[in-house]
């Protein structure tokens, strides 16, 4: 406990005596964490946008023309027994033809001269929102395909897989950016802490000479690195918050029509950013102090 109290005091005095280096290091962390945070903000909002699009995604079950009433009942049972199904709309062949006739584009107009109705009857199925909505749609479609009386299924497979690939790519990109920025930060902070250590080299040597434990020597520098990380990340969150506030006040009205809202980074990720920054500060300080004490002990 006494070691910790003394460590805090020494940390404060270190910071005060190396204010410029400390502030420079905090500014660097702030910039790096802001970049990461802004990417995270972009990711969250893209995710939200794509999710709102995929909420529109529905499964259309096209029926055989000669489907029996028992086969239809079987299909309706499957729909109603599925908890994820939000609504089912039955579209008869006649309704489908009428809709086609009213919405047909110019290049398909020759089809209107057909003397028979070529369109099948169908069910349009909407699903509730859930985390595994897309994979559920895919699995449910596979079940329906095997049912008698079903001619084909349409559910935007290509769109779903593209969306999933995009989200995977975004996550990898975020991890890569996060990893590279963390590595850069570790190098920068470790150099800042190294400067701090060398400015107090005589004092550290004296501490060791008069019986300080290596832990006693390390604690103030570890705390300094962690404080740099904490201060840098908190400032970065203010910047990200400011950018979010600006975008929301400027563009929210434009995206209202899409039923979307500018989202801020979710709380666990906010704490994650702070935690990452503090961890980076700790690791950088640990590397510097470890190297310094190692060289000192090699004498």
């Amino acid at each position: 406990m006494q070691t910790l109290i003394s460590g805090y005091r020494t940390t404060l005095s270190n910071i005060l005596s190396n204010k410029q280096t400390f502030l420079l290091s905090v500014a660097t962390i702030t910039i790096a964490i802001s970049i990461l945070g802004l990417f995270l903000l972009l990711f969250f909002n893209l995710n939200g946008l794509l999710s709102s699009w995929n909420r529109e995604e529905q499964v259309i079950v096209y029926l055989d023309d000669d489907i029996s009433s028992s086969q239809k009942e079987n299909l309706e049972d499957i729909f109603s027994n599925n908890q994820q199904v939000e609504s089912t709309i039955e579209v008869s062949r006649e309704t489908a033809w009428a809709e086609f006739q009213s919405n047909v584009s110019d290049n398909l107009k020759p089809l209107l001269s057909l003397e028979f109705n070529p369109l099948p009857a169908s069910y349009k199925i909407r699903f509730r929102s859930s985390d595994n909505r897309l994979s559920h749609i895919r699995e449910f479609s596979k079940i329906l395909e095997t049912q008698q009386g079903v001619e084909s299924i349409e559910y935007g497979e290509e769109w779903i897989s593209r969306f999933e690939k995009f989200m995977v790519f975004s996550k990898i990109f975020l991890f890569a950016i996060g990893g590279l920025l963390s590595l850069g930060l570790i190098l920068i902070i470790s150099n800042t802490i190294r400067l701090s250590i060398y400015s107090r080299q005589d004092e550290i040597e004296l501490m060791l000479l008069i019986g300080a434990t290596p832990r006693f020597v390390k604690i103030p520098f570890l705390l300094e690195g962690m404080i740099q990380g904490l201060a840098g990340s908190v400032l970065a969150l203010f910047i990200i918050g400011g950018v979010h506030y600006y975008l929301k006040s400027k563009f929210q009205s434009s995206i209202d029509a899409m039923g979307m809202d500018f989202q801020f980074i979710a709380e666990p990720f906010l704490f994650g950013l702070i935690g990452l920054s503090v961890l980076v500060g700790f690791m950088a300080s640990y590397i510097s102090t470890f190297q310094f004490l190692y060289l000192l002990n090699k004498k």
Binding site: T3, S6, M207, I210
Partner: peptide
């Protein structure tokens, strides 16, 4: 007093 602080006296 520094010599005592480093060894953790109160």
């Amino acid at each position: 007093s520094f010599a005592q602080e480093v060894i953790g006296h109160d």
